[in-house]
Amino acid sequence: MQVAAVTTGGTVCVALVGILIEMMRRQANAMSEVRENVQVARDHVANTHSTNLRDDLDSVMSRIDQVIDGQERHNRDLTALREEIGHERRERLSVAERLDDHIEDTRPVVAAVRQLTG
């Protein structure tokens, strides 16, 4: 009976060691996969130049703000130009209308002068 217990105990110990080794192997494989994924992620986010990414983004945002400010100035300038062009157009049309009226008003005078000189 004592031999059977030792044999059974030895078998159980060998089985437990085998299970432990398998668990460690699986854990090592999982860790290896995680290590590879971490390296891929690091390659994608690693800063390969001398400036800090945050500083670079701040600089880009500052330049974008400058571009937006410039566009807003251009919009104001264009609005002012449209208003000036509209005013000039209204004045031109008014002058053209007055000129047409003047021409109409002077037709009888021109006709009378032609009759007298003609």
Results as ranks from 00 to 15, higher is better:
M1L: 13
Q2T: 10
Q2N: 14
V3M: 03
V3P: 00
A4E: 06
A5K: 12
V6D: 10
T7E: 14
T8K: 14
G10A: 12
V12K: 04
A15F: 09
A15E: 15
V17C: 09
V17E: 15
G18E: 12
I19Y: 05
L20Q: 05
M23L: 03
M23E: 03
M23I: 00
R25Y: 06
R25Q: 04
R26G: 02
R26E: 08
R26I: 02
Q27N: 08
Q27T: 07
A28W: 10
N29H: 03
A30K: 08
E33C: 05
E33M: 07
V34S: 08
R35C: 12
R35D: 13
R35G: 10
E36S: 06
V38H: 04
V38G: 02
V38N: 10
V38E: 10
Q39C: 05
Q39G: 02
Q39M: 11
V40Q: 03
V40P: 00
A41S: 07
H44T: 06
V45S: 08
V45R: 08
A46G: 08
A46K: 13
N47A: 13
N47F: 06
T48E: 08
S50F: 05
T51M: 05
N52H: 03
L53V: 11
R54N: 07
R54D: 07
R54P: 00
R54F: 07
D55W: 12
D55R: 14
L57F: 14
D58Q: 11
D58E: 10
S59T: 15
S59G: 13
S59W: 09
V60R: 06
V60Q: 05
M61V: 14
M61C: 07
S62M: 08
D65R: 14
Q66P: 03
V67R: 13
I68V: 14
I68F: 08
D69Q: 13
D69L: 12
D69C: 05
Q71C: 08
E72K: 12
R76C: 00
R76T: 11
R76A: 09
L78A: 11
T79C: 02
A80M: 10
L81P: 01
E83M: 07
E83F: 04
E84Q: 13
I85S: 08
H87G: 08
E88R: 15
R89T: 15
R90C: 02
R90S: 15
R90I: 09
R92L: 13
R92H: 13
R92W: 06
S94W: 05
V95T: 04
A96R: 03
A96H: 01
R98P: 00
R98A: 04
L99A: 01
D100Q: 03
D100I: 00
D100K: 00
D101I: 01
D101M: 05
H102P: 01
I103P: 00
E104W: 01
T106P: 00
T106I: 05
T106A: 02
T106V: 13
P108Y: 00
V109N: 01
V109L: 09
V110M: 01
V110L: 03
A111M: 11
V113F: 12
V113A: 14
R114P: 00
Q115C: 04
L116M: 05
G118K: 03
